[in-house]
Nucleic acid binder design. Structure first.
Lengths: 96, 96
DNA sequence: CGCTATACCTAGCATTGCGAGGTATGAGGC
DNA sequence: GCCTCATACCTCGCAATGCTAGGTATAGCG
């Protein structure tokens, strides 16, 4: 969900996604490459992202872009997150 | 964290924990036994809970209780959840 | 006497986060 | 010229864990 949310703002390549996530979360989500790259691959396999290779200043880059399905999934996950976090708040709040 | 939060309100046995979690979360967290029982065992192994057997109306029950360590861990997780959910909110909110 | 609810359990599959290790280029310092 | 660091990608494999499936046993109700 977080990866999709980052890519909602516009296409980006893996390293940018990691940096954007770190920036947007004020450092809270500083995910290692071993987490993010496989996750991006899974999302592409599932049809939520597409990727295209390019060469920028000699370095190869793989740019990811949200698909229509990705937008739909993200919307669903956003509302799911709302329900989920609200439920957690309820459970945490009602204490002795 | 959710299990610890439920047990913060007072000792309870496994089935009660499941029911309490379902109730407090308005049905959102309806966890199967295969999730909850092993999790309670892990928490006990880790020293966050203690358990004691009893026989109530012919049925054997294992009652779980928060330890001092459990309270400490729960407090830490509560604030961790605060940081975490805030960060998620930030990432989800800053969209295109 | 059988069904349902209560109440516990474990084995094993599928998923996933991430540490570790690998490849290659560009830029900056000495 | 060379070394180091940042950029930029990748995969292997361990460890953790959620849950399905299956099992045991008792109480209560019709």
């Amino acid at each position: 969900m977080l990866l999709l949310a980052v890519l909602e703002a516009g296409p980006a390549h893996g390293y940018e996604v990691i940096a954007a996530l770190r920036g947007r979360s004020a450092g809270e989500f500083d995910l290692p490459e071993g987490t993010v790259y496989p996750a991006l691959h899974r999302l592409e396999t599932d049809g939520e992202l597409t990727s295209s290779w390019s060469i920028e200043a000699g370095r190869r880059r793989r740019t990811y872009r949200l698909t229509a399905a990705g937008h739909t999934v993200l919307a669903a996950q956003r509302s799911e997150w709302g329900r989920f976090s609200h439920a957690v708040r309820s459970v945490l709040a009602v204490s002795a």
